[in-house]
Design a protein around this nucleic acid. Structure first.
Length: 872
DNA sequence: TGACTGGAATCAAGC
DNA sequence: TGGCTTGATTCCAGT
């Protein structure tokens, strides 16, 4: 077992660094020497072992697998990012994110044992001559926590492949080192001696030009073909076929359950519920299992999390196999007492404090408290307190900075790898979006059918720019939070079959995520009707119990359908494009109770208010309220005003209201505010953006911005001009839980205000705004309902990546307005904001200087909120 | 008969 | 400590 694993590992390494030479013979690492891939499986018959164990045994993985030696995707569990290279101590150097140590197989390493193998330090890989992300703090180097070393994430769950249910202590005590089929990073662990490390360095030096590619492999698919897979006649050159037979280990409908059925009773799809209802604490873990993580516990309430348990000997690479690749990892003793909070309060605290700390994009796992802002941000009234998750923008940036969607057929990107929806002429587009609600079914329930489209029928996905031959369209359930798009830990796609289902599909399991594969046929214009995809809800407690799982399921009920296709380009390369649907609320309750705003018009009006605003959506009640709010950079509620709803012109799907007057009618710039519909406490719609315009402004599209090619709806954070963070979906509705204050900051680029603000950024997609020309007295065009196919913005698509705000130009009505003109250097450095401000102010009869004079304080350098005058 | 749906009961946990 | 509230999960019945 060990030997085989080692061989694979070595091959993997070669590929990662572009060494396409013939793989050397089996590498070192005999039994007891190599990582104990098979830990936890020792007592399992290889035939019956779950995939994870087969993996460990050197058998193929479902996903990806073409030629031997192709790195396997790391993301053992949905949501776990593949780690990017990190800056090495020496300038201009990238260093991989290896497992720092590996517990080698040894006596006692079997499942259930405590694992007694020796621990080896794993070498780091340095890739030179690469300009690292400048803003990645070098402290990363010194903070193992950055990648969660020693954190709960590091301890793979025992459930093994697909084991999202309580494992009942399976394999407790045994550690699993990265699977041989795991990501390339797991390779590090394999090079446990100096020579290997030297080889690594040498290899790295050779592949400078392929760094990106190499980086992309930090966690790519397994080279190992799945034994179950079968060739796909219709896609001879489909990249997936290149994955080898595996093709994701296409499995029968119930394969997921089969594979995932962990624990003592794999035959039973679910543990018997003691009393009909399953108790959270029924997991058998001392620490009342997941939800123990108190649903509403707060950092403040709980205080700082106690220091993490002493680091276990095995510290796995974050990118290395996770839950699904491990088996036999300790359960009970290392289940992290995840102090999670589902409230936005928590989310914000984490988010804000985390961003700087998680430059690699990975939250300091297990140490949420550590990064939680003391005194965290209060939970504001607006929005539901659904889970808002941290926004590892920096992580995204570091991770995919500039990476093109071109991959080798032998190393397709993992599911959590952000991909553009468009590349050159290729574009994967959702022609018909799914409904905003789809009640997912539990395993204990029958299927609740396929996801449907808003206008009826089902979602339709189309690949543009290619029609040569059939391709495989992959679909999985992704997250809909503000973090980068990734497989959802609590939802899986569910294949729907039946006579009413016209689209043939196959199920595959890719790194623990169920993937539905369909075929895009040229005769169908490379379009697929997604009538075969339902959504399965996994029990929160099962998922949260997984080792390394940091997401929470509570209130994390929003998903997106993610579609991905790999288009062969010749030369052994493919272009991988991906798109995601609008968010889909999957809970029954929320779907029934939460008001949803799907469209509204206008999107802006004069600060005087008084205009009629029409909202269309659902779940509006006779006593629904519409509240406008504005928040400051610190998230503080600056202004709140309830709009007057015209009940006579309102219905369950329409609300007609009068826009309230803005608090400060002397603003010189458009003011971004938000509104939400409230059906009562905790029953609020996602916030929608709205703008109050000063009389002097009108709105029209900006000329092409340099950001367009890269920006996402998240906008370039921290004043950087490039942000590859996954785009936020361009739809009006946001997250029901989202509180504007906790939104991703954006830059009001239109004003060149380069200081990052924490203004929330929700609201409609730029595409809705483009062309918007708004005078205070001129209503904007009606915002379309959730579009049938609002293309997701993507970092690589210059056409649909208009920054929300930047997309809007505010041209002064009066003559002579030239942002930045005559501005001081300082002003220019701020993008002319000040100058614009000052230039405009006089129109309203007062200048900044005058204000300064009045209040006796120099405000010229004061970074006032965009769109608002300094206090007078 | 089985899949699909909608509704609601029950439970756990926070407030 | 007990009641209320909320969200998750399970169950039931109708189509």
């Amino acid at each position: 077992m060990g030997a085989a694993s080692c061989e694979d590992e070595e091959l993997e390494f070669k590929l990662v660094f572009g060494e396409e030479k013939e793989a050397p013979p089996m590498g070192a690492g005999g039994p007891g020497e190599g990582p104990d891939w098979g830990h936890g499986c020792d007592d399992l018959d290889s035939e019956d072992a779950p995939s994870c164990c087969r993996l460990a045994l050197g058998e193929p993985l479902p996903y990806g697998a073409a030629p031997i030696g192709i790195p396997r995707p790391p993301p053992p569990r949905p949501g776990m990012h593949s780690p990017p290279p990190r800056p090495a101590p020496s300038p201009g150097t990238w260093e991989s994110q290896p497992a720092r140590s590996v517990r080698l197989g040894g006596p006692g390493g079997s499942a259930g044992g405590a694992g007694g193998g020796r621990v080896l330090e794993c070498p780091s890989i340095r890739i030179t001559s690469i300009s690292p992300t400048p803003d990645l703090p070098t402290s990363l180097e010194d903070t193992p926590e950055t990648w969660g070393d020693g954190s709960p994430r590091d301890y793979p769950p025992p459930e093994g492949f697909g084991g999202y249910r309580e494992a009942g202590g399976q394999g407790g005590g045994a550690f699993f080192s990265p699977s041989p089929g795991s990501s390339s990073l797991s390779s590090w662990s394999f090079f446990s001696d100096a020579s290997d490390e030297a080889a690594l360095y040498a290899a790295c030096d050779e592949v400078e030009s392929e760094l990106n590619e190499a980086a992309s492999r930090f966690g790519l698919s397994s080279p190992l073909p799945s034994p179950r897979a079968s060739p796909r006649p219709w896609t001879p050159e489909d990249p997936w076929s290149l994955y080898g037979p595996s093709s994701g280990g296409r499995a029968p409908e119930d394969s997921w359950l089969l594979l995932s059925a962990p624990g003592p009773n794999p035959a039973s799809p679910r543990p018997a519920s003691p009393c009909g209802k399953r108790r959270y604490s029924s997991s058998g873990t001392p620490s009342s299992a997941s939800p123990a993580l108190s649903r509403r516990g707060s950092l403040g309430d709980e205080g700082p999390e106690p220091p993490p348990p002493p680091p276990l000997p095995l510290v796995r690479d974050p990118s290395s196999p996770g839950p699904f690749d491990y088996a036999g990892a300790p359960t009970t003793e290392s289940i992290p007492q995840k102090t999670r909070r589902t409230s936005s309060e928590q989310a914000v605290a984490l988010s804000r404090s985390e961003e700087p700390a998680s430059c690699n994009g990975k939250p300091p796992s297990g140490t949420d408290e550590a990064v939680a802002a003391p005194g965290g941000l209060r939970k504001e009234a607006a929005g539901m307190d659904y889970l808002a998750v941290p926004s590892p923008l920096a992580w995204s940036k570091a991770r995919i900075g500039g990476h093109s969607p071109i991959f080798r057929t032998s190393a397709l990107p993992p599911l959590d790898w952000p991909l553009p929806s468009q590349y050159e002429q290729l574009e994967l587009r959702i022609e018909v979006q799914p409904r905003a609600h789809h009640r997912a079914h539990y395993e204990t329930e029958g299927s609740r059918g396929a996801v449907k489209a808003a206008p009826g029928g089902h979602p339709v996905v189309k690949l543009l720019g290619y029609s040569e031959k059939p391709l495989t369209l992959q679909m999985f359930i992704g997250t809909a939070d503000e973090r980068s798009l990734r497989p959802h830990a609590f939802y899986q796609v569910h294949r729907i079959t039946g006579k009413m289902v016209a689209t043939a599909s196959y199920e595959a399991v890719v790194s623990g995520t169920k993937v539905l594969e369909m075929t895009l046929l040229p005769e169908n214009n490379m379009a697929a009707n997604i009538d075969c995809a339902g959504i399965l809800k996994l029990r929160n407690s099962d998922i949260e119990l997984r080792k390394g799982e940091t997401d929470i399921g509570r209130k994390n009920t929003r998903v997106r359908l993610v579609f991905r296709v790999h288009v062969p380009q010749g030369g052994g390369k493919v272009v991988s494009v991906q798109t995601a649907s609008v968010p889909i609320e999957c809970s029954q309750r929320s779907a029934q109770e939460l008001p949803q705003v799907e469209a509204y018009s206008p999107s802006a009006c004069s600060v005087r208010g008084g205009e009629e605003l029409v909202l269309t959506g659902s779940n509006f009640l006779p006593d629904s309220k519409v509240v406008f709010i504005e928040r400051g950079p610190d998230g503080k509620l600056l202004w709140e005003e309830e709009a007057a709803v015209n009940r006579l012109q309102s219905s369950e799907v329409t609300l007609t209201l009068t826009v309230p007057e803005y608090s400060n009618k002397r603003v010189s710039r458009p003011v971004q505010v938000y509104f939400y519909v409230s059906n009562g406490r905790r029953k609020r719609s996602p916030t929608q953006s709205f703008k109050f315009l000063p009389v002097i402004f009108k709105e029209e599209p900006l000329p092409d911005s340099s950001l367009r090619g890269f920006s996402s709806t998240s906008g370039p954070p921290f004043g950087t001009d490039m942000d590859f963070s996954p785009p936020r979906p361009p739809y009006p509705s946001s997250y029901p839980h989202e509180d504007p204050a906790y939104e991703t900051p954006y830059l009001s680029e239109s004003f060149g205000y380069n200081t990052p603000t924490l203004y929330p950024q929700t609201g409609p997609p730029p595409s809705y705004r483009s062309g918007l020309r708004m005078f205070p007295e001129t209503a904007a065009p009606f915002r379309p309902p959730l579009p049938p196919s609002p293309p997701l913005e993507d970092p690589f698509n210059p056409q649909n990546t208009v920054h929300p705000l930047p997309a809007e130009g505010y041209n002064e009505v009066g003559p002579g307005y030239t942002p930045g003109e005559g501005a001081s250097e300082q002003e220019k450095s701020r993008g002319g904001y000040s100058s614009g401000f000052r230039d405009n102010v006089p129109i309203q009869g007062i200048t900044l200087e005058e204000v300064s004079e009045i209040i006796g304080r120099d405000l010229t350098g004061f970074p006032a909120r965009p769109g608002e005058e300094p206090p007078a």
